[in-house]
Design a protein around this nucleic acid. Structure first.
Length: 377
DNA sequence: TAGTAGTCAATAGT
DNA sequence: ACTATTGACTACTA
C-alpha cells in the first residue's frame, strides 16, 4: 500500500533505523539543542499564555469561534491556568478514515462521517467569523505580540502584518483554519508541501493556501481565490520559506510522479518528518514549552507519544494514520508565532471551558478519550 | 485471526 | 519538572 519509501527526503538509511528499531533508534539524537533567548522568551510566553480569560470576555463571541487550534481540545476537561497542568488526552479523530488515501469504507464510519460532515459545515460557516474575530482580536492582542523577542521574526514568521491589515489576518486565519482538524486534511492535501528553504515560489504557496481556504469555504472558492490572489502580502513569503523546509517538494523535485501519493486531486503532500521533529523540538525548547503541553494542546497526544515521535520520526512514507500528528506539528510550525502561542493559549481555554461543539457530538471513547473529534470553527 | 500502526499511561531517568 | 522508555491496548488491514 505504501510504497512511497523513496519519496522521503530523510534518507532511507535513517528510515531503516527508525523503522527497525523503535526501541533502539535513539541514534538521531542530534536534534536541535539551541535554546537561545530562552529566559526572555519564557517570560513573554508566560505573559501570553497566562493571560487567561481574555478571550472569554471578548464581545465578539470568540468563545464560540475559537482559534482553530482549539479544535484539538477535549471537552469537559478542566485545566488550570498554568502551562503545566495537564488533562486527559484524547485521540485524534479517526484519521485514517478521513485523511490521505486511507479512505477505507468501513461499516462503523457512519457516525464518524456524520460528525465530520457536521464539523465541516461548521468550519465553513465559521471561517469568516474566525477571520473576522482574528482580525479584531489581533488589535487587542497586539501588545502581547510585541512581547515576543526580536528573533522571532528571524524564525521566519514574525509577521506583524496581521496586526496591520486585514489581509494579513485573513491570510493567517485561512492558514490556521486548515491547520488542524480532520476537515483540514480532508481537503488540504492537495499539496501543501514544500518549501522550506524557499524552493517553492511565493505564488505557489499562496495559491495553495488560498486553495485551501477556498475549499474550506465550501466550494465557492474560485472567487475567493482570485480575490486573494490579488491580496498577497509579503509576509506570507517569509513564512513559507521559514517553514516550508519541513516539507518535501518531491513532486517538484522528482516530477510528479511516483505514483501513489499522488497525482492531482490526490494527496500530494509529504512532510519531512525528521525535519518537522527537529523543528518542533527546537521550538519547544526555544519557548520552553513542555512536550506534555504541546502534545496535549496542539496534537491531542500524550507526552510520551510526542517524545517518541520527535525522537524517532518515521518517514512519511511509512506512516499511516500517524501522518495526522505530523501534519499538526507542521501546521503549527507554519503558524506565525503569534498564532502558535494563541493556539496554545486557546487550547488551554478550550480545555478549561469545554468544547461547545463536542458536547453534542457522539463520542467514540478510546480509553481516556472525552472527545474524539477535532473541532473546526 | 495475526500482524502492524498508533497511542496511552506508567514510570524510570535526567 | 520535564523527557525518554516501554508494555499494553485499540483499530485497522490482509
Amino acid at each position: 500500500m505504501e510504497n512511497l519509501g523513496n519519496l522521503h527526503g530523510v534518507s532511507h538509511s535513517q528510515a531503516g533505523d527508525l523503522m527497525s528499531s523503535r526501541q533502539s533508534s535513539h541514534s538521531h539524537r542530534n536534534l536541535v539543542s539551541h535554546a537561545h533567548g530562552r529566559s526572555a522568551m519564557v517570560s513573554s510566553m508566560a505573559s501570553i499564555l497566562d493571560s487567561t480569560g481574555d478571550y472569554r470576555t471578548d464581545p465578539s463571541g470568540l468563545s464560540g469561534h475559537l482559534h482553530p487550534a482549539m479544535s484539538m481540545c477535549e471537552s469537559g476537561m478542566s485545566l488550570s491556568n498554568t502551562y503545566t497542568t495537564l488533562t486527559p488526552l484524547q485521540h485524534l479523530p479517526p484519521i485514517s478514515t478521513v485523511s490521505d488515501k486511507f479512505h477505507h469504507p468501513h461499516p462503523h464510519s457512519h457516525h464518524h462521517a456524520a460528525a465530520h460532515q457536521r464539523l465541516s459545515a461548521g468550519n465553513v460557516s465559521g471561517s469568516f467569523t474566525l477571520m473576522r474575530d482574528d482580525h479584531r482580536g489581533l488589535a487587542s492582542m497586539g501588545n502581547l505580540y510585541g512581547h515576543y523577542p526580536k528573533d522571532m521574526s528571524g524564525m521566519g514568521h514574525g509577521s506583524l502584518s496581521p496586526l496591520s491589515n486585514g489581509l494579513g489576518s485573513l491570510h493567517n486565519s485561512q492558514q490556521t483554519l486548515s491547520a488542524y482538524g480532520p476537515g483540514a486534511h480532508l481537503s488540504n492535501d492537495a499539496k501543501m508541501l514544500s518549501p522550506v528553504t524557499g524552493f517553492e515560489s511565493h505564488a505557489t504557496m499562496l495559491s495553495r493556501s488560498e486553495e485551501h481556504l477556498a475549499r474550506s469555504l465550501g466550494g465557492h472558492g474560485h472567487g475567493m481565490i482570485s480575490n486573494l490572489n490579488g491580496m498577497h502580502h509579503p509576509h506570507s513569503h517569509l513564512h513559507s520559506q521559514a517553514n516550508g523546509a519541513a516539507m518535501l517538494a518531491e513532486r517538484e523535485r522528482h516530477g510528479a510522479g511516483s505514483g501513489q501519493t499522488g497525482g492531482s486531486g490526490g494527496q500530494a503532500e509529504e512532510i519531512n518528518t525528521k525535519e518537522v521533529a527537529q523543528r518542533i523540538t527546537a521550538e519547544l525548547k526555544r519557548y520552553s514549552i513542555p512536550q506534555a503541553i504541546f502534545a496535549q494542546r496542539i496534537l491531542c497526544r500524550s507526552q510520551g507519544t510526542l517524545s517518541d515521535l520527535l525522537r524517532n520520526p518515521k518517514p512519511w512514507s511509512k506512516l499511516k494514520s500517524g501522518r495526522e500528528t505530523f501534519r499538526r506539528m507542521w501546521k503549527w510550525l507554519q503558524e506565525p508565532e503569534f498564532q502558535r502561542m494563541s493556539a496554545l493559549r486557546l487550547a488551554e481555554f478550550m480545555t478549561r471551558d469545554g468544547c461547545p461543539q463536542c458536547r453534542n457530538v457522539p463520542l467514540k471513547p478510546y480509553k481516556s478519550d472525552v472527545c474524539g473529534f477535532i473541532m473546526l470553527f
